[in-house]
Amino acid sequence: MNLHGIRAIYLFEMARTWRTLMQSVASPILSTALYFVVFGAAIGSRVGEIDGISYASFIIPGLLMLSLLSESISNASFGIYFPKFSGTIYEVLSAPVSPLEVVIGYVGAAASKSVILGLLILATARLFVDYEIAHPLLMVSFLLLTAITFSLFGFIIGLWADDFQKLQIIPMMVIMPLTFLGGAFYSISMLPPFWQKVTLFNPVVYLISGFRWSFYGVADVNISISVSMILVFMLLCLTTIWWIFKTGYRLKN
C-alpha cells in the first residue's frame, strides 16, 4: 500500500481546509448558531417539548446532520472536482496509487473536516442549549459513519460533475430539501398519517432519527434500521466509485 501517497493527498486536502478557515469552518458554525438563536431560543420557547425533549435540544441532532451532510458532500466533491477542472489531476492519475488509496486520501480528509466541524458545532450548541448525550460512543460512530458515507457521495458528485453548476445542484436541490423534510426540525409523528408514510422514503429521516436516538434515546424509526440504511448507502457509494475507477468514467477518457 502506498501510505506516503495517501498521506500526501490527505495533507494536501487538509491544508486547503486550514487555508480557507473562514469559509470551511467559521461560516457553517455561524449559520448553525443562527439556527439555534432563531429556532431554538426565539421560536423554540413557544413550541414546547417534543417527546419530552425541549425544542432547542430536539433540533441539535438534525442541525448537526444538516451541516454534516452538506459539508461532507461539498468538501469531497470540490476536493476531486477542482484538480479535474484545473488539470492537476494528471499527477494523481499518473502516480502509483490505487483507486482505494485515492479514495482514502480525498474522502478521509473530507470526512475528517466534517467530523471536526460537527464537534465544533456541538460545542457551539452548548453555548445556547443544555443537552446530554445518552450514547456518546454511538453518537461518535454515527457521526463518523455519516461523514464518511456522505463524503463518498460527494466524491462521486465531484467525479461526475463537469461544471461548477453540477457540483452545486445535488447538495442544493436534493440534499437540502431532504434534510429539511427529514425531521431536522420536527418529529415525523407530528405529520398527518399519510405524510408519515411518504416521509419514510426519505433516506435522511433514518439518519436524523438514528442520530437523535444516540443523543436522547428516542427515535422515529428503529435504530438498527437507521444503521442499516446508512451502511447500505455507503456500500452503494463504494460500488459506484469502484465502477468509476474501473471504467475510467469522467477520469481517464
Binding site: 506516503h4 498521506r7 500526501a8 499527477e91 496509487v97
Partner: peptide, 12 residues
C-alpha cells in the same frame, strides 16, 4: 509544499 506532495504521491 507541492514538491513534498509530488514526492509523497509517488510513494517516496
Amino acid at each position: 509544499a507541492q514538491m513534498e506532495f509530488s514526492r509523497g504521491l509517488f510513494g517516496k
